[in-house]
Amino acid sequence: MQEQRSRRSALKALGAAAVAPIAAAHVSGLSIREQGSPELDSAHLQAIADAVLPTELGADGRARVVDAFLRWIRDYREDAEMDHGYGFSRIRTTGASPASKYSEQLEALNRAAAAVKPGPDGHAFVALDLDARRAVIAGALKEAKVERLPQRPTGAHIAADLMGFYFNSSAAADLCYRARIGRDACRGLDGSEKPPAALNE
């Protein structure tokens, strides 16, 4: 029992450390409504996060990812110049906010959830257990023809966007390798010749 508890504590610590860089860069308590986009039910988004993000993050860690995701959406700029560095001769700009499609996708998740197990009006998805939510999300991703994690949110589906947002992050790479790589951080040259420190150090 003692050993189990230690392991759980260690995993929780790992998860908290792995999400910290995302959380540090974002302010919690934001909502898409603040930027004039259709309102998103944050409980609904959290229910998706609990189903698609690793348990090692812990509930707090997943909540911080949701906050960071909402912040990303809030700060998205339409028609912004996109990177066209060396080797790219075409000038591109960002399109409409991916969030413009999210309300409709959340409603569809609710409808699909209600077909599995009727729940409170508008909250059927949240009422499902984790495995059932994953099954509903898998059906939605299949219908939306989402095959890969997007590098950044695209609007193809909110669940895939949330997953891509997290799993492609520097923090997720640290969690995967259980090491403080800090890919997107400015870290200095000292010590770079050694393997990165373990995540729980």
Partner: peptide
């Protein structure tokens, strides 16, 4: 890289 589907085409979530 992290992937959404495994080699059999099954969606992967969370853990």
């Amino acid at each position: 890289e992290p992937r959404l589907k495994d080699a059999s085409g099954t969606y992967l979530f969370g853990d």
